[in-house]
Measured scan of single mutants.
Amino acid sequence: MPVRRGHVAPQNTFLDTIIRKFEGQSRKFIIANARVENCAVIYCNDGFCELCGYSRAEVMQRPCTCDFLHGPRTQRRAAAQIAQALLGAEERKVEIAFYRKDGSCFLCLVDVVPVKNEDGAVIMFILNFEVVMEKDMVGSPAHDTNHRGPPTSWLAPGRAKTFRLKLPALLALTARESSVRSGGAGGAGAPGAVVVDVDLTPAAPSSESLALDEVTAMDNHVAGLGPAEERRALVGPGSPPRSAPGQLPSPRAHSLNPDASGSSCSLARTRSRESCASVRRASSADDIEAMRAGVLPPPPRHASTGAMHPLRSGLLNSTSDSDLVRYRTISKIPQITLNFVDLKGDPFLASPTSDREIIAPKIKERTHNVTEKVTQVLSLGADVLPEYKLQAPRIHRWTILHYSPFKAVWDWLILLLVIYTAVFTPYSAAFLLKETEEGPPATECGYACQPLAVVDLIVDIMFIVDILINFRTTYVNANEEVVSHPGRIAVHYFKGWFLIDMVAAIPFDLLI
């Protein structure tokens, strides 16, 4: 008679799926529990143990900040960024110097990925580790590398530091407007667009060049630039800015003055950032001319202004700041037409079709709590990747769950009947059967004279019903998954307890 339990259901295979997918890609990662103190490590794979030199037993239950890997060259700011990422709910990448158990130093890129439950609360953290440099290539500990984003994938490793954006290309926007319009339909740009040429040739750093990471940081200074100062900065030398009595002219307006920039070969870094931020506020060169004239017309309804409409929906549905990093990277690809469009465009503009998908598509409701890094690593669709929660398995109709209350009560009843059979069957065979043979035949009273025979008949009927119930009862397979398919249940029961239950259900007393 089957006594099969499996009270692990309803099970959740999400954690096993993450481990299996990460292991298949030869990654070095740990999984931490966000619900406990210090976000203790609950799993670390073999790749991480080989990377740091510690065994799994030495890593388990330690804080996922990996303070046991810190050393003299470990930056405090990087460690603080990892700790801050564990307090938030967004994906974050941090470069930090770690030390192995043998004392060797290596520069590592740590990717902190939160995993949320159905309520939107962070319950786990996945920390992925990628070695960037070994100890002989690690720089000085005073050099802070965590304020910069990861290198873009479309640049060669040897040319990542030679990417320079020439400031004269930004200063000569109005001069290039006529050349853009003359391109017409034969050019790649839309009317009114501004073409910015980027020099990728390796050259020595000069005062006129600005690194790509500095251009990325310009967006942080746009908020500090007032509207009046932006307007004066875009007017140009024809209309000098008016300053109040006793007030000095704005240095932001002076930063885009061609006369002032041409007199000296070098520009201050602050002026460069502010000038680029001011130019980015204009949607095209037409807006710059309109600002000089004193009238700013409404933005025209053409394809170039609607190019950012799908980007707005993608940004609203993005799951991490990696989408913004990807957008900034692609927006700086050289030799393309940049349409400086305000994100607050007309909502009635139709979304044009684009061959290049900048932001990841909208994630469906079932995966809105899973970050983009987890979705990318697992390579699963929205119909396959579940949320991290207890999910009731989908069972067929008329199927009994093996952990249901009805099955528990039924098993206790069958257990009592088995005990009765084990006690009274030998007793009936030894004593009652002998008395029946010696006594007179009682054929007239039937079952009324033999109450134990009636009980034995009921017990046999219950055993037959138990066999039928076992054909529709779920079970737990070797992978700790609840199986509810009727065919698989029948095959599993035939290979197991079916023969024993059938022999126990045969009414031998009635056959004798």
Rank of each mutant, 00 (worst) to 15 (best):
K101A: 05
T162F: 12
S313G: 12
P63K: 11
L200H: 11
P168A: 07
Y54F: 14
S331L: 01
L87G: 12
L349N: 14
G53C: 01
T162M: 15
A40S: 14
P157G: 09
A121M: 04
L380A: 03
R301M: 07
S55P: 06
A307W: 14
C105E: 14
R269N: 11
Y54N: 01
L380V: 03
V180G: 09
K93P: 06
E230T: 07
P347Q: 10
F29H: 01
G294I: 08
R148S: 14
N146I: 13
N339W: 01
K364C: 04
S313W: 01
H302F: 11
Q247D: 15
K161D: 11
R242I: 09
L127Y: 01
T174R: 14
L200D: 11
D46T: 06
E37N: 11
S278A: 15
V374K: 03
L15G: 01
R326H: 07
R164K: 13
A382P: 14
R273N: 07
R280G: 10
K21W: 08
H368W: 07
L256D: 06
P300K: 07
I358F: 15
S320N: 03
T305G: 12
D219F: 04
V384T: 14
E95F: 05
S179V: 06
C52H: 01
L385I: 08
R273G: 14
A169E: 09
A9P: 06
N38C: 09
M308L: 07
L225P: 05
L315E: 15
S313K: 11
N317Q: 07
P241A: 13
T270A: 12
R326N: 09
S284M: 09
N257T: 14
V279S: 14
G224M: 05
E365Y: 11
V36M: 15
F340I: 12
N117R: 13
L165Q: 13
S207L: 06
E95G: 03
I82C: 01
I336Y: 14
T329G: 06
S261K: 04
S182M: 07
E372D: 04
N38K: 15
A360L: 12
C64W: 01
A34D: 01
T162Q: 08
R301L: 12
R62D: 01
P168F: 03
N128H: 09
G294V: 09
G71T: 01
S239E: 10
D287W: 09
N33H: 07
D287C: 06
